[in-house]
Design a protein around this nucleic acid. Sequence first.
DNA 1: AAAATACCCATGATATACCATTATTATAAC
DNA 2: GTTATAATAATGGTATATCATGGGTATTTT
Lengths: 152, 152
Amino acid sequence: MTLFLSTFINKLDKKGRVSVPASFRLALSGQTFQGIVAFRSYKLPTIEGMGMDRMQRLSDSVDQLDLFSDAQDDLTATIFADSQMLAFDGDGRVILSQHLLDHAHIKEMVVFVGRGTTFQIWNPEAFERHQQEARKRVQEKQATLKLRADNA
Amino acid sequence: MTLFLSTFINKLDKKGRVSVPASFRLALSGQTFQGIVAFRSYKLPTIEGMGMDRMQRLSDSVDQLDLFSDAQDDLTATIFADSQMLAFDGDGRVILSQHLLDHAHIKEMVVFVGRGTTFQIWNPEAFERHQQEARKRVQEKQATLKLRADNA
DNA sequence: AAAATACCCATGATATACCATTATTATAAC
DNA sequence: GTTATAATAATGGTATATCATGGGTATTTT
């Protein structure tokens, strides 16, 4: 099992620790770095999470040895500089930095959302809202699609 | 684990020493030269840093340019001539030369910024400004960046 | 000799490792 | 189908190790 699936809600303790869902840990079990890599989404109030291997591949694809090109500059600045390596403790927990928590407006409860090869970490209410809006957009799209189909 | 990730802010002591972040040292632990290679960025007020192995690769790629071409000449002058090997002391610190410090306007605090296969060393305020601008540009260019990220 | 550098050790802060307890889920027995 | 039991996962707290930092002393360099 190498995919991140489902959503899980866990509690943030007063030290900022939170258990990474067991199934996510299983998906990461083959990796050398036992933990997750996390950075602030540059588009939504959520934290992007993945394994180190994916980060490595991201780096490889960006690494053309033209380390001075403008094109890659902003991307590397934003992603690599902002990302953090969060190691599991013996019980599969990580510590989310204040930096990350602030961005996602997380206070006590944390939602892990599987997205296949990556996952996201949300504030529960914010995630719920985001989901509903996404659903609404899909429905609207379906409506327009149907109209088009009828017209065709 | 060979990537430089996150940003760390450390202090320059009165002897000019500064701790290289532990995770950066870990990323360099496999190398024969225990230290960093640093040179002045030619387009930004920052110091470019990397391990000796990456410097070697850079050299190899420059070798493939025509031996006496302008491009090779420029790279050799701006990178190899300007770069310095800074060895770790017993506690993982290096001494940044005045030459480098002046270029980056560093006085007391030093920011280490991971960029995947390399890193940069900044003045804190200058970095903050640069980072925010980069983030803004990334948000504007979202679509392109997303494609890249997905392909990785 | 003076200055710069390398080496060594001490300390406080913080993160990591470890262990105990609770909760939840799955399994088995009745 | 319900209850009992076991297994796994999540949570909470404490001890330990690591790291950044500061200072001292020796060693090299000029």
